[in-house]
Design a binder for these strands. Sequence first.
DNA 1: CACTTCATATAGCGTTGCTATAGGTGCTAG
DNA 2: CTAGCACCTATAGCAACGCTATATGAAGTG
Lengths: 242, 242
Amino acid sequence: MSFDGQLPPKTRLLRAAAELLANSAGGAVSTRQITQLAGVTAPTLYHHFGDKEGLFDAVVAAGFEEYVAGERDFAPSGQPLEDIRRMWDNHVQFGLKQPELYLVMFGNIRPESRPAVVADAEGLMEEMLNKAAVAGQLDVPPREAARSILAANVGVTLMLITEKAPERNLELSAMTRDAMIFAVSSDQAKSSGPEASGKSSVVVAAIALNAALQASHSDQLSSSELKLFLEWLHRISTSSTS
Amino acid sequence: MSFDGQLPPKTRLLRAAAELLANSAGGAVSTRQITQLAGVTAPTLYHHFGDKEGLFDAVVAAGFEEYVAGERDFAPSGQPLEDIRRMWDNHVQFGLKQPELYLVMFGNIRPESRPAVVADAEGLMEEMLNKAAVAGQLDVPPREAARSILAANVGVTLMLITEKAPERNLELSAMTRDAMIFAVSSDQAKSSGPEASGKSSVVVAAIALNAALQASHSDQLSSSELKLFLEWLHRISTSSTS
DNA sequence: CACTTCATATAGCGTTGCTATAGGTGCTAG
DNA sequence: CTAGCACCTATAGCAACGCTATATGAAGTG
């Protein structure tokens, strides 16, 4: 698993860094690890990339290409807002598939220094939202809408990454996504789009009862009865109308 | 500006770390800086906090106290959803006022390791949302709503932190906030808004659910389950609890 | 061949987080 | 009073870190 091949040292460094980053379960990656895996010594790294951060920026740039490629693959749909939905999902998928790379791109942020990648991602989304605006489906200027949606998108992705894979609840993403898209949509788009949250009053009432029961300690049911009762309540509460 | 006073070394270390962290424009803070400012040598730090991360956790814990205190100061309003709105704004304000501390708390995340502070913040918000659910103002289970809102809240705050102060657009926060709260609100809360009396009790909720269940034909429970469920519901509805 | 330019290596600087070991301090027991 | 015993802190230093001053090799050009 070494990159001592015939490739130029610059490429070997990039690949070594990317691989170590991907497998570095949260821990830091040292320049010595990278140069050793690349079969190169330290000055070579600094000759080509200036810094450790320069190298990581290059890795991020490569990762961003992949990200953008994924975003652009979804575009044929005639409905811009549907495309935004797919951009959101693609963003989340990218983050979950390469969490370490994602954290370098959108996570480790420093105040007052705006990573270029964020601005690019924002531009990408704004571009798409522009089409929606042209079609009269937007209720908010595209730039503001893009910033808002992207902020929520990043927040959700970061939260999902911190969860262990088996218990990841993608419902969180879907719900937040629809909420944001709905919020920037014009009335026209709202009525025609995927039917607004048609939650039945049953669900609302069940949720309310569930919360009320847990707040007050009713003694009308035995503990075993209550347990089963709450389980059913939960089933009703979470019956999503998709 | 040194903490060589009569305070115990543990306290001096905490204050020194907090101060250096607050003024470290994104750069790393070394243990040597901290111990020097605290007027203490290295082993003292490791005796009290185990390692550097332990110290930072302690600083975060202190910062979290402040955060929670801010969140709890807004609570008297009888309208839970309005309180959620204030929690959101307080969260953003906290992040902007102490960006470095905020980044340590919610930023530098490692995959598959959930910082305790996030879980706590989530619990705080869920608690408040529970009240909204009791009042029948929620369209989504409180836990899911809390996770979703908090995720967006963190995303927005991180995005605002990366912007230079003079050009920060708080409209981004307000817009995203309202979108998220609107999305989890029940129709009742949406339309009536301030009207809804927060007097809903277990009994009222049970009655509402009973009526709703009989009006619609939910298929989440089998017929036998439903029968027993309704019987229990009746028992709760007719109870004379406080 | 002389000369420049680019790319890589040797060796080491200063700093980092952390610790093995020892010494000082204040307590209670005899 | 003193012996012992925790508790706390300091001296000194290790291994690993990011990075670089300097030197060596390879390749192209006059």
